[in-house]
């Protein structure tokens, strides 16, 4: 069994802020493996213990090599990191295109595991786009996996309905945090991963045309980023209980949270 795991290098969103002049400050934020992807890595590592080969694929900046070491520490054979100046502007579609090229080059794979969503972009698109490009089935939201023979059974929660579905392999499955509890990766465990396990490739090596990844050629482009006013309203209601209760109910309704 051969497994490809998608692991994304992301900035920690709790450390992202806007400078007093309104600029987005992402650079100094610490980076890490996308939380959802840790669950995919953990699952793959468990499958590896029963003989599977696990390859990690990622698209990211050069610093992502460090993150790959962390991803490898879960227990994987090697990692392929595609990068280049174009990464800064790449959209989910471009990411999926490159990941598909990695999957083809390193493949064939029986199973592709990914996170449901990335913490920074939060698009929840890449795994589905990859599946569509590879022409394989795609199931998202896995809370449990059963890989056997030529198919995979996926348990997942859709609203408050729990369903179990089965799709043929090869397939792309994206997972939730309910899937498992990833092991802790200690500093020492990361240091023990040799850098030689991380292979860095560029578009040409993947047989892709760099022109197709120029900002203007992509399907989308982020044209502006602005802060969300996260300051709480701090609106204080005082007075007659009945009155404030009615006022509160009305406000909540207005906010669309009821």
């Amino acid at each position: 069994m051969r497994i490809l795991v998608l692991a994304k290098h992301v900035p920690d969103t709790t450390e992202i802020r806007f400078s007093p002049t309104g600029e987005l400050m992402v650079r100094q934020a610490p980076t890490k493996v996308n939380d959802y992807d840790r669950h995919a890595l953990e699952e793959a590592s468990r499958l590896r213990e029963s003989g599977a080969e696990v390859v990690i694929a990622s698209v990211g900046p050069p610093e992502a090599a460090k993150t790959m070491k962390e991803a490898l520490a879960y227990g994987a054979d090697r990692a392929v990191l595609a990068g280049g100046a174009w990464v800064a502007d790449a959209d989910p579609e471009a990411m999926a295109e490159v990941l598909a090229a990695i999957a083809r080059r390193e493949g064939p794979f029986d199973l592709v595991l990914a996170g449901d969503v990335s913490e920074d972009g939060y698009n929840a698109l890449v795994p589905g786009l990859l599946a569509a490009k590879l022409g394989t089935p795609y199931v998202r939201g896995a809370t449990a996996l059963g890989v056997g023979g030529a198919s995979v059974k996926v348990t997942r929660l859709v609203g408050d309905v729990e369903e179990e579905v089965e799709v043929a392999l090869p397939a792309v499955i994206s997972v939730t945090r309910l899937l498992n509890s990833p092991r802790v990766i200690s500093t020492m465990a990361v240091m023990k991963v040799p850098m030689s396990k991380v292979e860095t490739v560029d578009l040409a090596e993947l047989g892709l045309d760099p022109a197709a990844f120029a900002p203007g050629a992509l399907s989308t482009r982020v044209s502006a980023v602005r802060p969300v006013q996260s300051k709480r309203g701090n609106e204080m209601l005082r007075g007659e209980p009945a009155e404030i209760a009615a006022e509160l109910a009305a406000k909540l309704r207005g906010m669309g949270v009821l």
Partner: peptide, 16 residues
């Protein structure tokens, strides 16, 4: 890597 989520979270938050 054999620790529960609460402890893992403390370690992760320290890093982040």
């Amino acid at each position: 890597g054999n620790v529960d989520e609460a402890k893992a979270l403390v370690l992760a938050q320290l890093e982040r």
